[in-house]
Simulated assay, not measured.
Amino acid sequence: MASTMKFMCLVGLVVLVSILGLQNVDAAGECGKSSPDNEAMKMIPCAEAAQDENAPVSAACCTQVRQIGHNPSCLCAVMLSNTAKSSGIKPEIAITIPKRCNIANRPIGYKCGAYTLP
């Protein structure tokens, strides 16, 4: 009887986790179905340039910024994400990367938390 009860609790827990997981997958946030933390992983080529305003911005970084930058709210969420913060990214420097990449159609003046895209 006790093993049956444990099994039922385990099945209930698996069902609950599955339902919550499916709701999370279907939800569309700033970056669509991907989380800002997942998108931040694509920004690895920008790590040095996002920590030092005098560091050169690589072509690989600019490519990623162009792709994510099509959605300014996603780019902002990525720059302010937990992944970016834990990687030592400085938002006040990261926010300058679209300009440093000479992206002509960047959202100049877009507010990103306490920062504004130049």
Rank of each mutant, 00 (worst) to 15 (best):
S3K: 07
Q23H: 14
E48N: 12
L22C: 09
P91W: 01
R106I: 03
I97W: 07
L80N: 04
P36A: 15
M5Q: 09
N24P: 00
K33F: 15
A40I: 06
I68F: 01
I108P: 03
A47P: 02
A27F: 15
L16D: 05
I68N: 00
A84S: 15
A27I: 08
N54D: 15
G12V: 02
N38H: 13
Q23F: 15
C112R: 04
Q64N: 07
P36C: 02
N105H: 09
N82Q: 13
E92F: 12
I108R: 10
C74D: 01
S3Q: 08
C74Q: 03
L75M: 13
S18L: 10
C74K: 04
D52M: 08
E30Q: 11
G113N: 13
A77F: 07
A40H: 01
V15Q: 09
I44M: 13
N105I: 07
C31G: 12
R100D: 06
M43H: 08
E48S: 14
P118G: 13
A77W: 07
A114Y: 06
A2D: 12
K99R: 14
P72M: 01
I103T: 07
Q64E: 13
G69I: 00
E48M: 14
Q64M: 11
C112A: 13
P56H: 01
N82Y: 09
C9K: 04
T83G: 04
D26K: 13
A114H: 08
I95W: 00
E48I: 10
Q64S: 12
G21K: 07
I108L: 14
P91E: 13
C61D: 04
K42A: 15
P72H: 02
P36V: 01
E48Q: 14
G69N: 03
A77C: 11
A40Q: 01
K85W: 07
T63W: 00
Y115T: 03
I95C: 06
C61F: 04
K111I: 02
L22M: 06
S81T: 06
D52T: 03
A40K: 02
S34E: 10
Q64L: 02
A55I: 02
S81G: 10
N54Q: 15
L16F: 13
C62D: 03
T83C: 04
A59Q: 12
Y115M: 11
A114D: 14
C74S: 06
L13G: 12
